[in-house]
């Protein structure tokens, strides 16, 4: 009886599948914005195998993959919706709901869990893990090589003295050593003041501490109102006294770039570097 039920189930699943390449993992679902972006970068070899992307793929506040994936492609939420797509591989992260990850494992769906989002090295590692899981190692190597080539070009452009101090300050939350911001700041020729003050990872500081550090640049996030945001932050009590506010060093970067852990990190390098004294108009 069990064999009949299992056989019927497998037959139903097989009938429900579209014609997919037989090599590697045929049906992929992403539950992470980073994977939505990177699956696209891996190229046309991978695109037809993606049967679902994360619900935030089209949210311009967080994603660099807006408009890339067809609107007809599924954006599943929860284990049930993911399982209904009969995937061979689901890409999750450590912050994906624990219940969803457990349910997928119980159903027997293979998952690739990405963990650790601390800068350029983690980016390269994650691309490698995805490419390995999809049997597209060459595409993964190419994607990382493109990233590194652009990074090298930007580093060269922003090399040289001086190395002004910068703080990424999001209403108290700052990024210290071992973060993607620290890597981006260093690549743009800046010194991460939070890291210099012994902060590792992300933590919260008071505005008094920010003012006492007196950085030359303060990076904040914005949506569509970046210029207004820079003015608003520069006028705040206390912050108005910092060198950043007095010398036009408040830099508002769109949130989907600033919080990116993918290739979007290069845009942070580009925008930050463009504000260096020798590059400012």
């Amino acid at each position: 009886m069990i064999r009949v039920v299992l056989g019927t189930l497998l037959f139903t699943i097989a009938c429900g599948r579209d014609a997919m390449p037989r090599t590697g993992t045929a049906r992929i679902v992403s539950q992470v914005v980073f994977a939505d972006e990177e699956l696209w970068h891996l190229g046309p070899e991978v695109h037809p195998r993606v049967v679902g992307v994360s619900p935030m793929a089209d949210d311009a506040r967080y994603s660099d993959a807006v408009g890339l994936w067809a609107s007809s492609l599924a954006r599943p939420v929860g284990a049930e919706a993911i399982a209904a797509l009969t995937p061979d591989l689901v890409i999750t992260a450590e912050f994906t709901a624990a219940e969803t990850r457990a349910a997928l494992q119980q159903i027997g769906i293979r998952t690739l869990e990405l963990a650790g989002w601390n800068g350029f090295d983690d980016y390269r590692r994650h691309v490698g893990e995805i490419a390995d899981a999809l049997d597209v190692e060459a595409a993964g190597t190419r994607s990382v090589a493109e990233f590194d080539a652009e990074l090298a070009r930007l580093r060269e452009r922003f090399a040289g003295e001086p190395h002004p101090g910068v703080v990424s300050w999001q209403e108290g939350a700052v990024a210290g050593a071992g973060t993607s911001f620290a890597d981006a700041a260093a690549a743009a020729g800046f010194v991460d003041v939070a890291a210099s003050n012994g902060i590792v990872g992300h933590t919260t500081i008071g505005v008094e501490t920010l003012v006492a550090w007196d950085p030359e640049y303060i990076v904040v996030s914005c949506e569509d109102d970046c210029t207004a945001r820079e003015r608003e932050i520069a006028a705040r009590p206390g912050i108005a006294a910092t060198r950043a506010a007095k010398q036009g060093g408040i830099v508002a970067i769109q949130a989907h770039h600033l919080y990116s852990v993918g290739a979007g990190m290069l845009e942070v390098v580009r925008q930050l570097g463009a504000r260096r004294p020798e590059h400012s108009p």
């Binding site: 505005v207 008094e208 003012v211 009590p237």
Partner: peptide, 16 residues
């Protein structure tokens, strides 16, 4: 002077 670091810390942040 709101643009002075000491005044900013004491008069514009701590006292209020």
């Amino acid at each position: 002077d709101p643009s002075d670091l000491g005044d900013a810390l004491v008069w514009w942040l701590r006292v209020p």
